[in-house]
């Protein structure tokens, strides 16, 4: 089995009023191809910090992150930006689409940034929108979409450059229960079909059946819970 995401001995401290607070303490995690992992934990336990480190947005104090077996540490800002563009897909709490781009253009943008040709972009965007059941909405602006539709566009955008890993930070927080389930089911399906590794931070117990493994983050460590 192939691990597309590995985290080794990740430690992160923040300076807090003169002394160091350790938020993540020698944390380890391996996520296999086709696997969706959920991370839960109380507020302030460091879930977002953990996700930012895995997603190359924040440097760990110590430890190593591997994407497709390659370490991502010690690179400059531009290289990290490139890495996020091509190897990672992000799904945020509020979808965070660009308000002035139509649904299709949201997807085209990331493909264009990665330098894909126009035909390739268009074909891939079509295919993804179809899979997300959004073909009929492809010329709509985000403010005309429902919360669930927006989140599905965000998933499609995250998948556009065929990344290795998907990261989702509370993707269901702004949706009602059934919409939330629908969205997580969609993420799980894409992860399975396209052989990605995925990490999802969530507070929502009801979506756990769609996840392969569930971890609990507390006192800087991840402990696995039975699903």
């Amino acid at each position: 089995m192939n691990n597309r995401l590995e985290m080794h001995d990740i430690t992160r401290t923040f300076a807090d009023g003169g002394f160091q607070r350790t938020i993540l303490d020698r944390l380890n995690l391996k996520v296999a191809e086709g696997e969706l992992v959920a991370v839960m934990g109380p507020s302030g336990s460091g879930k977002s910090t953990f996700l930012s480190i895995a997603g190359a947005l924040l440097e760990p104090t110590r430890g190593d992150v591997l994407i497709d077996g390659k370490s991502i540490l010690g690179q400059d800002k531009q290289a990290l930006s490139e890495l996020r563009l091509r190897k990672m897909g992000f799904i945020f709490q509020n979808a965070n689409l660009i308000p002035y781009l139509k649904v299709e253009e949201q997807l085209m943008l990331v493909a264009k940034l990665a330098g894909s040709s126009k035909e390739v972009c268009a074909q891939r965007a079509d295919e993804l929108l179809q899979r997300m059941g959004l073909t009929h909405r492809k010329n709509a602006y985000p403010h005309k979409l429902s919360g669930g539709e927006r989140q599905r566009v965000a998933i499609a955008r995250a998948l556009m450059n065929d990344p290795a890993v998907l990261f989702a930070d509370e993707p269901t927080a702004s949706l009602d229960a059934s919409r939330g389930l629908e969205v997580v089911a969609m993420i799980a399906k894409q992860v399975k079909e396209q052989r990605k590794s995925a990490v999802m931070v969530t507070h929502d117990d009801r979506v756990l059946p769609h996840c392969d493994r569930v971890f609990y983050l507390d006192k800087g460590k991840l402990t696995e819970h039975p699903v």
Binding site: G55, L83, R84, L85, F92, N96, V110
Partner: peptide, 14 residues
């Protein structure tokens, strides 16, 4: 600001 933050997070160069 937050929009630019998102764009940077998903890999748009400054």
């Amino acid at each position: 600001t937050s929009q630019f933050g998102i764009l940077k997070a998903i890999g748009t160069r400054t």
